[in-house]
């Protein structure tokens, strides 16, 4: 059976070739650059971990930065590679708005996870003792994060 709506669809990728190639190239370079920056930050966090000085806050800041960069990457992939940016506004909304659910979803789950940790640390001292990294300067011991969500995803 033919779709009645089918012939009505007007394809809108009639932008000229060079223009299109230029955009793809630009996006590719952008993605690569962002990835490289992310890797650099990752390595920087590594060196921060190695040093003895307590820099939890700085590390958290960098992690937040990486999350934002990742979101930017996702934006470029979706809007240019997947052509969502070229679609009609309503279409973009039907995709983007449901994803907003993730905000509460992430917040609630991570808050819960943190609450489990607090319960275990308060009422299961053996758990606290065996898993809590020791205070004195070992590498990668500052992994404990404060309660707020880090904007993952």
């Amino acid at each position: 059976m033919e779709h009645p709506a089918f012939e009505e669809v007007s394809f809108h990728h009639h932008t000229d070739d060079a223009e299109f190639k230029r955009r793809v190239k630009k996006t590719t370079i952008l993605l690569s650059v962002i990835t490289i920056i992310e890797l650099a930050i990752g390595l920087f966090i590594y060196t921060l971990h190695k040093s003895d000085v307590n820099r939890d806050f700085l590390i958290l800041g960098f992690k937040g930065l990486v999350c934002i960069l990742t979101l930017a990457k996702a934006y470029y992939i979706v809007s240019v590679f997947m052509h969502l940016g070229d679609e009609i506004r309503n279409m973009i909304m039907t995709i983007v708005v449901p994803l907003m659910l993730f905000i509460w979803f992430i917040f609630a789950f991570i808050y819960e996870g943190n609450s489990y940790k607090n319960l275990r640390n308060t009422y299961d001292l053996h758990f606290k003792e065996t898993t809590m990294p020791k205070k004195h300067g070992n590498a990668e011991t500052h992994e404990v994060k404060p309660a707020e969500k880090s904007g993952k995803e």
Partner: peptide, 18 residues
Amino acid sequence: AFLVWAHHMFVTGLNPFL
């Protein structure tokens, strides 16, 4: 409907603030 799932879990040790 998407936002309220944990009301089935008030007594599971759910964080009181949540």
